[in-house]
Amino acid sequence: MSEQILYFKPERSTVVYKENINIEDIGTVFCQDPAITNAVEKISLFTFHKNMDGRQVITVLKVISLIKQEFPDVTVLALGDPEFIVFHKKPEPAPKKERTITIIKVILVSLVSLFGAAFTIMTYNNDVGVNEVFNQIYTLFTGEVPKKTTILHLGYALGLPVGLIYFFNHVAYHRLSDDPTPLETQMRIYERDVNDGVAISSGRNKKTLDVS
């Protein structure tokens, strides 16, 4: 029989809730021989301290060396990033308390977003002198000097939410198209930056689980 090729693809970052992690917890394995696939998936990779949050950066080389120990004849083809991160979270404590804290956090971030955005648009309008420009435009069109708010203010107040909804791509929770919202894409970029940062600093501090 020809030599078996085993494909291994780690997730860039995974969150686990148990102490002992196997290869199947952090990525996917494929081999033509299902017996090898199943055995490789069960290879133990790392053990976290119990009841402690932690993270570990592991290189693909380490995984390959562990697989080679068990199956010297198998060729391992790793796909994806050369290193990956495993975050360990202790098993959820009292879920009810956790839930209350989460709700409070969500409310606080919501309020910061709500009032912060309201404040910044006011400072923006003030800074760029929206009122002055509106008055100038009004005089240009009608020849009169406006004494109170004009039709321009109404249009601006209407156009702004339309632009916001268009930009954010959803009305309340109803999506206007399949695209992810701008915050969702920005979240992924931020997550990637964090993962890169963790992997690089772990490597520099010699904390990465590698073959040598």
Binding site: F119, T120, M122, V130, L164, A172
Partner: peptide, 19 residues
Amino acid sequence: MLYENMLILGITLGNIIFL
């Protein structure tokens, strides 16, 4: 998504209050 809704609401209301 909730936070985005809050941003939309905040900017719209803040703008109206200012104008």
